[in-house]
């Protein structure tokens, strides 16, 4: 399993070969609270880094999930639509959002590794 990297907006990305799994971090789900709705991108959609890729909604509010890297959506976790609570229960496992075929692997270099992300979380509190 590849290394998990994080964005400042609390998305994670885990690269396996030339495909990356994207979701939101455990911190993000804890901040959101109970997730009640998720809107995933269409299969085949070409995302540019920073694009709105998905929407996640708690009882209280809607939040956008941004694409951490550029690439094409090759798979979505459609089970989330019926079971959005999976995002709270296992955000970095079975609560993943989508798989993306990397357009430019060099974009990964700009993201935080787990230790950096932990330090970042500590710095914003």
């Amino acid at each position: 399993m590849g290394e998990t990297k994080y964005t400042k907006d609390h998305e994670y990305i885990r690269v396996e070969g030339d495909v990356a799994i994207v979701g939101i971090s455990d911190y993000a789900q804890s901040q959101l609270g109970d997730v009640v709705f998720v809107e995933l991108p269409k299969l085949g959609k070409a995302l540019s880094k920073g694009d709105e890729a998905a929407v996640v909604e708690s009882v209280k509010a809607a939040s956008e999930v941004y694409a951490p890297v550029s690439g094409e959506v090759t798979e979505i976790n459609s089970g989330l639509e019926a079971q959005p609570g999976t995002i709270n229960e296992d955000p970095e496992g079975s609560g993943w959002f989508m798989k993306v075929k990397l357009a430019d692997p060099s974009e990964l270099a700009g993201l935080m590794n787990e230790a950096d992300y932990k330090a970042y979380l500590a710095s914003i509190h």
């Binding site: 907006d9 609390h10 509010a61 939040s63 956008e64 999930v65």
Partner: peptide, 8 residues
């Protein structure tokens, strides 16, 4: 992920 605005 987008974050809510806070009032100072």
């Amino acid at each position: 992920m987008s974050e809510p605005q806070t009032d100072p």
